[in-house]
């Protein structure tokens, strides 16, 4: 399994991508599988840290709730900051958050989630001390944001990847 097909998820994803770019026919399935197999063999030569997804359902639920709720809400909030007169004085600033997670895949996913959400952006992760530096557009509710990152994002990602 690990020699013939080192990254099954990557192979499936590449095949689906190939077929959706071309057409869903048997010939493209064979061609796409061949290309995906070569690509995942090349990926194995790079030897990245192999992620193990322990609870795929929890991961899917987290991603769906972030895409369809958190990002929508923060889109609205940032659009109001840009266009309208804010109800209170906006206070942008830096924020340091201690992280317990050490899994590289989990950290990468956390970076994508935080930067993809308008209003927070990931600046720097210090792997020696395990602290994360982020910049926040409106530091109005600092405790709620810290709670969101620590208790929802980090906890779920740690359950999934560690």
């Amino acid at each position: 399994m690990s020699i013939v097909l080192p990254y099954p998820l990557l192979t499936v994803a590449l095949t689906v991508m190939w077929m959706s770019l071309n057409s869903f026919s048997f010939g493209h399935l064979v061609l796409g599988l061949a290309i995906a197999w070569v690509a995942s063999a090349a990926m194995a030569a790079l030897r990245p840290e192999k992620p193990r997804i322990r609870r795929p359902l929890a991961l899917i639920r987290l991603l769906a709730s972030v895409i369809f709720r958190d990002i929508v809400l923060s889109n609205i909030a940032v659009a109001r900051i840009i266009l309208g007169v804010p109800r209170h004085a906006r206070r942008p600033g830096f924020m340091t958050i201690p992280l317990e997670m050490t899994s590289q895949t989990g950290l990468a996913l956390l970076a994508v989630l935080l930067t993809g959400t308008p209003g927070t952006s990931w600046l720097e992760y210090n792997s020696n001390e395990g602290t994360l530096l982020i910049h926040v557009l409106d530091l109005d509710d600092e405790e709620a944001l810290r709670d969101l990152i620590k208790n929802r994002y980090e906890r779920t990602l740690m359950e999934v990847f560690e």
Binding site: I82, L83, P92, P118, S121
Partner: peptide
Amino acid sequence: GSIGFLRFKTFYERLHAPTLGTS
């Protein structure tokens, strides 16, 4: 997002504006 990118004063604030367009 692009208007915010033009209007914000510091680089770190401008970092937030294009993510409106990319999300």
